[in-house]
């Protein structure tokens, strides 16, 4: 009788351990996949920007400086390969794009152009997708870190070698308000 109880407990424990381990693996893959999703959207942004700048050039004769800044920021961001370098570069690009969008408001012909409108929609959507992909990445990281840190799944996590994941931190420049010059 006692033997059966012990056996039952061992089996229950093993089932729990396997289920938890598999859950942790699925969570880790979800976090990894979330990070890749961000990259996919960033790549799309790099592809869209030259097209938009090309079309906008004809309308925004006086704003060459802004357009140059957008292109320069895009190239820097594209060539930043380490996470440490890409954070500030991405922030700069987002800032330059923000200024471009703000300026575009004062060019009615630019906004009326069908081509520009669809490019703007694509770029707006891509900006959103980047933000949502980061948000989802952070949500996945939180769920996974909770499992790794909470008892009793943390025991399985420790034994399986699951480490906590890092959150995506918003670069400081992106949280700073955009300076608007009225002149």
């Amino acid at each position: 009788m006692f033997g059966w109880i012990v056996l039952g407990l061992v089996v229950a424990l093993a089932v729990y351990a396997v289920a938890t381990y598999n859950g942790l693996v699925a969570g880790r893959n979800q976090v990894g996949n979330g990070w890749k999703q961000i990259d996919v959207q960033l790549k799309r942004r790099y592809d869209l920007i030259p097209n938009l700048v090309e079309v906008a050039k004809d309308y925004m004769g006086y704003e060459q400086e802004t357009l140059k800044q957008v292109i320069a920021a895009r190239n820097t961001a594209m060539n930043a390969h380490t996470p440490a370098a890409s954070g500030p570069a991405e922030a700069q690009l987002a800032g330059a794009l923000g200024r471009f969008f703000a300026l575009a408001e004062s060019y009615p012909e630019l906004k009326a152009n069908e081509n520009v409108r669809s490019l703007m929609e694509e770029l707006t959507s891509t900006e959103n997708k980047i933000a949502f992909a980061r948000q989802h990445y952070n949500d996945s990281v939180m769920a996974q870190n909770n499992r790794i840190e909470q008892f009793p799944s943390n025991v399985v996590g420790r034994l399986g070698g699951f480490g906590p994941h890092e959150y995506f931190e918003v670069p400081a420049a992106e949280t700073a308000p955009i300076k608007v010059s009225l002149r």
């Binding site: 979800q30 979330g34 999703q37 959207q41 959507s125 959103n128 997708k129 949502f132 992909a133 948000q135 989802h136 949500d139 996945s140």
Partner: peptide, 9 residues
């Protein structure tokens, strides 16, 4: 729709 699908994973 794609944006919301990304947000929801």
């Amino acid at each position: 729709v794609e944006e919301m699908a990304i947000a929801a994973g």
